[in-house]
């Protein structure tokens, strides 16, 4: 039935879109504020995903270096709730380190160098994870209870029937975080600096605001969001070393293209548009799903290069 399919697409699209949006916001803000092109953004998602697995439960290992030295299983088994705090914090710290040691030395170097070094970094992260934990695919890690509420198992929904309950909660949590991020950017002083920096970092510097500290925070925030997106992804999708690039980096850039650099609203909008597109195509004509996704991005990039909400002329 058409309505059934439509709702299914909508729900799946919201989940996917939420992840895309979280990724896109981070990338967009980093690009907008510091003009830094971070091809390692997907690696942050990857790190978040694996860190999530580590915090949430014990995972048995069957390949990789750790396994070869006798470590059969790793993980703290702290549960999802703890991971929701720990993963973004961890991502934040990684972001700070990355900004300080990788991004900063490259701010004044040609664009191509930024692309190349972050590309190399993404490769290294992916390979290290593969080397340590093995290249195989892990199953999703959905929680069954969260803060005492039963979130696992199916729930009966009108029209479409049984649907995994967790995936609905997931959308709620993601939207909450997205909303929070939006408020931080729009309403706080820090957010104002980010916005101003997005429009004119030169000016912000001249006004005496300590832009370098802001850069670190912006980067770390973007990283935390990406890591959190990884946690969310882990809870309903499979996990393997490639997801950093395939499921995170490329979509993040497509979101950036559709939504426009430097715009949080744009990233949110772009994320959901792309998420629903992917979900729709997966259901309707899965062979063409990815192709359409890329075609949409290329189309936007060619015909409306500033994205749908873009602020800066970053494009020419």
């Amino acid at each position: 039935m058409v309505l059934e399919t439509a709702i299914e697409i909508l729900l799946n699209g919201l989940q996917q879109g939420a992840i895309f949006a979280l990724l896109g916001i981070g990338l967009s803000v980093i690009l907008g504020t510091m003009d830094f092109l971070n091809l390692a953004h997907g690696a942050l998602y990857l790190i978040g995903g694996y860190a999530g697995m580590y915090f949430i439960r014990e995972t048995s290992l069957s390949a990789g270096y750790l396994n070869s030295i006798g470590v059969d299983a790793i993980g703290l088994g702290l549960g999802f709730a703890a991971a929701m705090i720990l993963v973004p914090v961890f991502g934040f710290i990684v972001g700070l380190l990355m900004e300080r040691y990788v991004a900063e030395p490259f701010y004044d170097r040609p664009e191509t160098d930024q692309l190349l070094v972050t590309f190399g970094l993404a490769l290294i992260v992916q390979e290290v994870i593969k080397g340590m934990l093995g290249g195989n695919t892990f199953q999703p890690t959905a929680p069954t209870t969260l803060f005492g509420i039963n979130v696992g198992g199916p729930v009966m929904l009108p029209i479409i029937g049984n649907y995994p309950q967790w995936r609905l909660y997931l959308v709620g949590i993601a939207l909450f975080v997205i909303g929070l991020t939006y408020l931080v950017i729009e309403k706080t002083d820090f957010g104002l600096v980010v916005q101003a920096g997005t429009h004119d970092s030169e000016m912000v510097r001249m006004l005496g605001i300590r832009i370098n500290r802001s850069y670190s925070l912006v980067f770390a925030m973007g990283a935390a969001l990406a890591a959190f997106a990884g946690l969310i992804g882990v809870s309903f999708q499979t996990v393997s070393p490639q997801i950093g690039t395939e499921r995170a980096l490329i979509p993040a850039f497509l979101v950036l293209v559709v939504g426009g650099a430097g715009s949080v609203i744009g990233a949110i909008f772009g994320g959901f548009v792309l998420g629903i597109t992917v979900a729709g195509m997966t259901v309707l004509a899965s062979q063409w799903a990815q192709i359409v996704l890329y075609a949409v991005a290329a189309g936007v990039l060619l015909f409306r290069p500033e994205g749908l909400f873009g602020s800066k002329g970053v494009v020419e």
Binding site: L31, L37, E111, L115, F253, L254, V257, A297, L301, L302, P305, V315, E316
Partner: peptide
């Protein structure tokens, strides 16, 4: 387009 957008 140029730069990262070209690459993308």
């Amino acid at each position: 387009r140029s730069g990262v957008y070209f690459a993308v």
